[in-house]
């Protein structure tokens, strides 16, 4: 595999999820590792010819038919033009890159997934991987918060999983839009507040977190209070990962590179690094 050369992909579907976010499905070579062998939390570099390239977490489940699901917010100079792409348009992909969530270490453990905003993208990938081998893990809990109800992603899918008893789901929003009374399944509170009434066994629980940097310090201190050790807390960090292969020098966290040593780090690995949590 040449890690420098993007291989061709075709945009097969773009499904708007909110006003600024879409679920983009790509198709590339069947059996290529970029689609078939990644761990949740790893990322790929997606190119839109003429616009550029950006790093993005996998949002779906590995597939041998070459299809890749990505949840994309259209706010960048490449993701912006991607909004107006149509099925059949050309793209290109490189990957998978980095280290994902440590699934092997999770075997036999209760799992607490915490997603803030677009952080649901890699955690949906993790959730799908966990559900595919449901018998390997203990309790599965997903805490998911967004700015407002209109910004919650994949709610139908998540509520159905909850109704089928596959996952314990708690949703929250920072505030309600004026015209809504708020759905019955959703609280109005900041994400870390969901941890207040959580009943968990710290010695057999691992937390997997992805969200905006602003929530990390609060989540981490709350999880520590609940008794989770730092090696049981994994966070996905965002940085400017231009090349994906550790050469461009933009994404160091302390002396570790987000693109090759991360983007998923255990809290223990980040000890003492000022600014690591954003």
């Amino acid at each position: 595999m040449n890690r420098d050369l993007p291989i061709p992909a075709v945009i097969s579907a773009i499904r708007p999820l909110t006003v600024d976010t879409s679920l983009v499905t790509l198709n590339t070579e069947p059996h290529h590792p970029v689609a078939s062998s990644f761990l949740p939390g790893q990322f790929l570099e997606l190119s839109l010819p003429g616009a550029g390239e950006f790093p993005v977490s996998y949002c779906g489940f590995p597939s041998v038919d070459g299809s890749i699901e990505l949840c994309i917010r259209h706010i960048g100079h490449v993701t912006g033009p991607l909004r107006t792409a149509v099925p059949g348009d050309a793209a290109a992909v490189r990957g998978p890159f980095g280290h994902g969530f440590p699934l092997l270490a999770y075997v036999g453990q209760d799992l607490l997934l915490i997603a803030g905003g677009l952080g649901i993208a890699p955690l949906r990938s993790l959730l799908l991987a966990l559900l595919a081998q449901r018998e390997l893990w203990g309790r599965l809990t997903l805490l998911y918060g967004a700015r407002e109800t209109g910004a919650l992603l994949f709610t139908d899918e998540l509520l159905e999983l909850q109704n089928r008893g596959m996952v314990e789901l708690q949703l929250t929003v920072d505030h309600l839009e004026h015209c809504f009374d708020g759905p019955p399944y959703c609280r109005v509170a900041l994400l870390p507040v969901l941890l207040d009434q959580l009943d968990l066994e710290p010695d057999r629980t691992c937390a997997a977190i992805c969200g905006p940097p602003v929530v990390y310090p609060l989540l981490v201190s709350r999880l520590r209070q609940l008794g989770l050790s730092d090696d049981r807390i994994h966070l996905s960090l965002e940085r400017r990962m231009k090349c994906g292969v550790g050469r461009c020098g933009h994404c160091a966290v302390g002396t570790r590179l987000c693109c090759v040593d991360g983007p998923v780090f255990s809290l223990a690995e980040l000890a003492g690094i000022e600014g690591a949590l954003g």
């Binding site: 950006f54 706010i75 100079h77 940097p213 160091a252 002396t255 954003g278």
Partner: peptide, 27 residues
Amino acid sequence: VAGGTNFRKERAERFLYRYRHKYRGFG
């Protein structure tokens, strides 16, 4: 990064970044 978040907004943070690379090494 896209959306305007900057992980090293302050010049002092950028100095520390340079220091780390020059005297500690990356990755």
